[in-house]
Design a protein around this nucleic acid. Structure first.
Lengths: 147, 147, 147, 147
DNA sequence: TTTT
DNA sequence: TTTT
């Protein structure tokens, strides 16, 4: 009871979001996010990258699929969730994901433009902080998504 | 580069911290932490508990082993780290942990007392917010800990 | 553009929430919250308390007025906002507040019970994490509240 | 006792850091930071900017004065502190500041370069997440700084 | 006083 | 698999 489960990340997308439409019309998006830190080891600069599995549901998934692409810098707030699933060999495995609750695009204006011609996108997304206003029930979340 | 990887948890310890002393005198402590949330599903109150693997290093591990016990309510701040290891059957597995950077004990005064006689512990720990002032190198962190 | 303004507090209410109903039916609640930290100064334990002005709007204000009382331990998430106002002598003053976005009650079960007889309250509030699902426009927030 | 007082900001510096050296060799730096959010009001895009007073002590102040400049995008973590001081007319006033505990520079590579010729700076600061490893006593913090 |  |  009465717990807090909060994750705050700033990092770059490793891939474009992968969007899936579940039965019932529910949209799910997911992508890997890299957060790197650098430190000194014996006088040499070492970079260590951590990869996070980001999952977004419903309205947030729709917006993410529209505005987030591989390489973009993004602030993500969400919660940790560890799921079990069976792999192809029927072995039970666990994966820990960050279920996003909102996100904000960071970075330069050029980062909010798309394509080779750098044409500004139609919608104003410069401050895409989207609150996930949908109630996310476990029935949705526990679906056997083959991520 | 330039990423943020931050986790904030408030929850109860599922077990007493398990302390290990690595070669080189490095101390590591770990314990499971539960964060629960309740929500309404079809008019019924449902509680969903998430379990987190908490890992603490060096000085922070020492303090944790001293003051944290099963059942205690604690605020933990740290970062996500996913590690791979081989299980007994030599199968490669992954586990995501929260490497604690500091913690604060929450809850009632009685929670800061130990044992059946409820004698106050010697040190004043009512506000144990400990900053991990040690530099945690990856050489330590990547050690093959058999958690 | 593209900023993050987030505050996370765990502390005790200094007073019961003060509730006000603005013209238009909008509810606002406010209370002082204390966060204390202790540290060693010349071998002596010193406690330093910081007081925060918490403001809650609409639905969140209603729930707060119902479940939060002086002395309760609470987790609050919100954003910083500095407001100017004129005091009785028409001097312009500034005050910085935390506009709450959600809160969770922490602490013992007995903390969720009310009154001298400690009768449990009707609604299950053990895990009152309330998302402020209302759109808070500046027209509301900039109202000249005589806090 | 046992509180949490945490602020997380991502925003742009409104001015270059102002550095001061106190008696005793303690360095303090301060600057205003803007966090903006945009929202829709009657179909029109409105931007609302919040200004924060950031204060950094000792080692963190030194690094900030070296690497942060007006306009830079930065992630800042710290705590709230409200101070009282007397203005020129001997009127007691209050100001709320964010005492930084660490920061990370965000944004493009060009943001980590200085001057009109865009020559890269000498030190590797791409991932300047600096932990304030100094113990910040209130004796320092309560100094009557004429910010 | 920043940025888009 | 990102970014610098």
């Amino acid at each position: 009871m009465s717990g807090i489960n909060k994750v705050i990340l700033v990092g770059h997308l490793g891939k474009d979001p992968e969007v899936r439409h579940l039965e019932g019309g529910v949209t799910v998006a997911s992508f890997p996010l890299a957060t790197s830190e650098t430190y000194n080891k014996d006088g040499k600069r070492v970079e260590q990258t951590e990869w996070h599995n980001i999952v977004l549901w419903r309205g947030l998934a729709e917006v993410a699929s529209k505005y987030l692409q591989k390489g973009k810098l993004v602030y993500i707030e969400g919660k940790l969730r560890t799921r079990s699933f069976e792999d192809k060999e029927k072995v039970k495995k666990y994966v820990t994901e960050i279920v996003a609750e909102n996100f904000t695009m960071l970075g330069r204006k050029s980062d909010f433009e798309q394509g080779p011609s750098a044409t500004p996108i139609a919608a104003p997304v410069n401050d895409t902080k989207i609150e996930d206003e949908f109630t996310i029930g476990p029935s949705d979340e526990n679906g056997d998504l083959p991520f």
